[in-house]
Design a protein around this nucleic acid. Structure first.
Lengths: 127, 127
DNA sequence: GTAAAACCTGACGTTCGCGTGAGGGAGAGC
DNA sequence: GCTCTCCCTCACGCGAACGTCAGGTTTTAC
């Protein structure tokens, strides 16, 4: 398939797909005219890349990890890298949970009936 | 205390603290010579700001939320904002867990003894 | 009173993951 | 062969959270 189709299938912009290629994350063959052609499994590849981006990994880190995910590389170094990233994600989840907890406390306080100035949306609608 | 002390106490750079003030997140009094002076509770304030940054909130969002955290503002709008951010954090945690799961699968595979090319660090040390 | 820290205000630089034209070729339908 | 859509390669822009000089002032220590 060509780049436009891959873009609509994955919901990722054409610009982003070209950027992924530039970063070495997504390979494509070229037609005689220079246009990119992708195999069907590129769709999953893009999803995977997006997932890792969403997890806060940089292009560089993803580039290092992809060969491990493809099981083409399996060295002590690559496994250490995988574990390091997993641990980083764990720490990030912990941080997020702390922030969430903190926000929850504030929300609970602001919605508590003991707080004089609490007003619900329905109150506001009535008023 | 002055800005340098606050920086070392919190582990945040002097530049960052000045940036927080610029964004309206962190107030400071000034000496006659123009130098910033902070109260002791500024330390906790900085930790809170860092926590919210780590949770992916922008300066602007933090600026909007801080009065709620200080319980100085409690309107239907502010509560909706708090809940919206909490939900965003929840979604982010979900995404992170997915990525973590994916990495874990890869790690399990790479460390599985059925995988021919698995080699532990101790193996490497022996070899 | 003098030197060394520590501090001040601009203001430009950096990184990342793209968005957004500009200007032109490739490919499919008629 | 013509047009229309899709695609190509530069290449600049951006927004966020600071880093990093430059050039000058304040505070502190001796």
């Amino acid at each position: 398939m060509r780049i436009g189709e891959l873009a609509t299938k994955t919901g990722v912009s054409v610009r982003a797909l070209r950027y992924y290629e530039e970063q070495g994350l997504l390979a494509a063959t070229r037609s005689s005219g220079g246009q990119r052609h992708y195999l069907d499994d590129a769709v999953d590849r893009v999803y995977l890349i997006q997932m890792l981006y969403a997890a806060g990994l940089s292009s560089r880190t993803i580039l290092d990890l992809l060969p491990c995910v493809d099981a083409k590389v399996n060295t002590p170094q690559s496994r250490a890298m995988l574990r390091a990233e997993r641990d980083r994600i764990d720490r990030q989840i912990t941080q997020l949970r702390q922030a969430r907890k903190r926000l929850d406390e504030v929300i609970a306080l602001s919605e508590s009936p003991t707080n004089g100035c609490t007003r619900t949306d329905t109150d506001a609608a009535v008023a």
